[in-house]
Each structure stands twice: as structure tokens, then as C-alpha cells.
Design a protein around this nucleic acid. Structure first.
Length: 170
DNA sequence: CGCATTTGACCTGCGC
DNA sequence: GCGCAGGTCAAATGCG
């Protein structure tokens, strides 16, 4: 079985309950603490260890599961979604973000908000949206990895991040 | 003043 | 080609 590394390119937001959260791995979603991920389109489930990134020339081009045909080869950065329950939309994850857009999402009464990391030379993006299905759930999607230290290291969520890594069987 | 936010316009990919 | 949906830009505006 292939071994690969899982890491979270962000720290967890405030008001995060690790037991009530899940990490979504780009095209796949599921509960990593149970070791299962499912393909978004086919809903076919894979063991997390069967899902891997497709990398060409050092660039992320998609992800696939064993026995699953390859995804589109469009060049883009890996995206990591983090889903949690929260009363507030603005989750402080320790980085400084500048909002650059807001869009209404189809079949969703809540808008999606787009943020960019304000750190010089860091073009990490994230988008935040609330689910219509369960409006207590906030879905945060990160794109890219911060190549700089956290801007507000005084926040106390680094230990929650450590907890989260324990929960993920990678 | 220096930054962040708001918000409509614009761009792009995709399906028909 | 056209329309839709998602993503981004940027000028105007707000705020400490």
C-alpha cells in the first residue's frame, strides 16, 4: 500500500471542534477519522490510503482513487476543504485575509466569500460558504500553501491543529 | 492616510 | 455561439 503524507496547509479556525469537523481532500470527501473518502462524482468510497495526488512536473493536476479513472488534467493547485460547525462565518485561523469577492451560489441561499492572504508574495486563497442543507455548517476551502509563518502566532489554535493531525490517519 | 470591504462588471470554462 | 455558473478585478466606499 502506497504511503503518502497528509498535512493541513492552514491552522484550524477559532470555534473549531475537531470531533465535529472533517477534512475534504480536493475531489474526494469523507470522514478521514474513519479512514474513508468518497469520490465526488461517483460517490464510490476509497480507503484514504488509496487516494493520492496526481503530480506532473512537480505540479498538482488532480487526485484519484485506486480503480478510479483519472481526473481531468487541468493544472491547478491542491485544494483542501475544512468543514466545521460554527455560528460565525468569520473564522480566525491566524492568517490575515483580504476579501476580494462574494458570489451567490446556485441552490444556496448563502453567498460564498473569497479571500486572499495579504502576506507579501503569498497568493494563498480561501473561500468560505455556509451550507443550505445545514446552515450550522461552515465550509472553508483553502487553495495553496502558506510559504511564511503564521501572522498571528499568539492565537491558541496551533494545539488544535496538532489534535487534528492525530485524528487524520495519514 | 493607509488599509480593508463592498459590489457590479468582467472573464473563463463548460454544456447544450 | 449562447447562456449559465463560478471566479476575479477594481473603483468606490468605509473605517480606525
Amino acid at each position: 500500500m502506497e504511503n503518502y503524507q497528509m498535512f493541513l496547509p492552514f491552522s484550524l479556525p477559532a470555534n473549531t471542534a475537531p470531533n465535529d469537523s472533517q477534512v475534504i481532500f480536493d475531489n474526494f470527501h469523507g470522514d478521514t477519522s474513519k479512514g474513508l473518502l468518497s469520490d465526488r462524482k461517483t460517490d464510490k468510497f476509497f480507503q484514504v490510503a488509496e487516494v493520492k495526488e496526481l503530480v506532473e512536473n512537480g505540479r498538482f493536476v488532480g487526485s484519484e482513487g485506486v480503480g478510479c479513472k483519472k481526473k481531468e488534467k487541468k493544472i491547478r493547485k491542491p485544494r483542501y476543504a475544512f468543514q466545521t460547525r460554527s455560528q460565525v462565518d468569520i473564522l480566525d485561523d491566524g492568517y490575515r485575509w483580504r476579501k476580494y469577492g462574494q458570489k451567490a451560489v446556485k441552490n444556496n441561499k448563502f453567498p460564498r466569500n473569497y479571500y486572499r492572504c495579504t502576506h507579501q508574495g503569498c497568493n494563498v486563497k480561501k473561500q468560505v460558504q455556509r451550507l443550505t442543507k445545514d446552515e450550522t455548517v461552515v465550509l472553508t476551502t483553502y487553495e495553496g500553501v502558506h510559504a511564511h509563518p503564521i501572522d498571528k502566532p499568539d492565537n491558541n489554535f496551533q494545539h488544535i491543529l496538532n489534535q487534528m493531525q492525530i485524528h487524520t490517519p495519514f
